[in-house]
Amino acid sequence: MKRFWKILFLILFLGFIGVQFFPVEKNSGELFSETDLIQATTIPPDLGEKIMTSCYDCHSNSTKYPWYGYVAPVSWMIYDHVTMGKEKVNFSIWGSYTKSGQVSLLFDMCKEIAEETMPLPGYQKLHPESVFNNDEMFNICVWTEEETIRLMGN
C-alpha cells in the first residue's frame, strides 16, 4: 500500500513538472493606449482606477499576473479567462468599438457590477480589492448613464 502512494505521488509530481513545458502566451500588451477606456471616455479618475483594479486583469490587453499565474495549470486557466473576457469587452480598445457597441457595453457594465455577477466570485475571493462597494456601484451606474446619454446625443 505504501508503494502505491509513492508511485501515485511520483506520477503526479512528474505530471506537474511535465505540464510546465507547455506555456501559454501572456497577456502583456501596452497598458495605456489611445483607445483605452480611460483615454477615450470622460470617466472620472477614481472610477477609472477602480475599473482598472477590478476589471483589467481579464478585460484589457494587460494582465497583472500573480506569482502562481506563471505555473501550469493555473496559467492555462487564466489564459482561458482572459481570452473569453477580452472577447466580451476589451477596455484597451474601447475607442475602436462602435457607438452602439459602447452603449450596449455600458449598459452591461452597470448591470453586471450592480448585480454582482462581475467581477467573478472566484476572482473577488482572490482579489478582495476588486470588490465594488455600494457607493462605487452607484457611481459606476451614474457614469455609464451619463456616458450613454453623451453617446446617444440627447
Binding site: V103, S104, L105, F107, D108, T148, M152
Partner: peptide, 10 residues
C-alpha cells in the same frame, strides 16, 4: 430604455 434595447439587440 433605449440603452437596454441596444444591449438586448446585440
Amino acid at each position: 430604455e433605449d440603452s437596454e434595447k441596444i444591449s438586448l439587440l446585440e
